[in-house]
């Protein structure tokens, strides 16, 4: 990117409006499925408060689903937290790629950091100027944050009221949610091989290990194999 692009010399109101419109579209669409996370919390044995705390304070969808998924399948909260935080590792790299556009210090950095997630980064880093990158990032991040937390609360209260989550197929929906998060990452041979290996290793470990362990051990072994395969190319 050149200096001229980096400085916001040429404000373009039409382009700005287009960025905001896209950000709102993605933000509302993604924010709404907070309702599924909310409904899953109580189904996994979390209280409404614990479910809402995750959306408010962790605020990173895949990690939240992972914690709830591991706990729901009988895993310990430690195994759940470990899986969840490992999944959150990618946010470090999102932060690195947004830092030069955001240029935030002090309390602003602390606030902006909370908005660093898949969608806000995707709607930010692809823009031609830092000004538009910031617009995409903040509009997407803040829209999702607001809607995600409202729908989580609504889902958690509704989920708490539903006696038997399995009767409405919520456990099948959790598997579908993980698959939906995984799907866009299967864009080449190595990730596909890692995914298949992860499935096989996890299932092989199920009879021999405590709940939660197949996810961490199976998943990370597949990653290690993927690094070896990828390195040979």
């Amino acid at each position: 990117m050149t200096d001229a692009q980096n400085h916001d010399a040429d404000p373009d109101p039409d382009a700005d409006r287009a960025v905001i419109r896209d950000a709102l579209g993605v933000g509302i669409g993604v924010g709404l499925y907070g309702v599924t996370f909310g409904a899953l919390g109580p189904a996994a044995g979390l209280s409404v408060w614990q479910t809402c705390a995750l959306s408010l304070l962790a605020f990173t969808g895949a990690s939240q689903f992972a914690f709830v998924g591991v706990v729901a399948s009988g895993g310990s909260p430690v195994a759940g937290a470990l899986t969840s935080v490992l999944l959150g590792g990618r946010n470090v790299f999102y932060g690195i790629s947004m830092a030069s556009h955001l240029q935030v210090r002090g309390w602003r950095r602390w606030a902006a950091a909370h908005l660093v997630i898949d969608e806000s980064t995707a709607m930010g880093v692809t823009r031609p100027t830092s000004h538009q990158a910031r617009l995409g990032f903040y509009w997407t991040g803040i829209t999702i944050f607001l809607i995600w937390n409202l729908t989580t609360a609504a889902g958690a209260i509704a989920g708490d009221a539903i006696g038997d989550p399995e009767a409405i197929g919520l456990d099948g929906a959790v598997a579908a949610a993980f698959l939906g998060l995984l799907w866009p990452r299967l864009d080449s041979a190595v990730p596909r091989a890692v995914a298949v290996t992860g499935v096989v290793l996890a299932l092989l470990l199920v009879p021999f290990t405590a709940p939660g362990v197949p996810i961490i051990l199976g998943g990370l072994s597949a990653v290690a194999l993927g690094l070896v395969w990828g390195g040979r190319r």
Binding site: A62, A66, T83, L86, L87, G89, R90, F178, L179, L181, L182, R185, L186, V190, P191, V194, A195, V196, T197, G198, V199, A202, I215, I216, G218, G219, L220, S221, A222, V223, G226, L227, G230
Partner: peptide, 8 residues
């Protein structure tokens, strides 16, 4: 790759 392995 970590999200891929863990999500799978």
């Amino acid at each position: 790759l970590i999200p891929v392995g863990l999500l799978a």
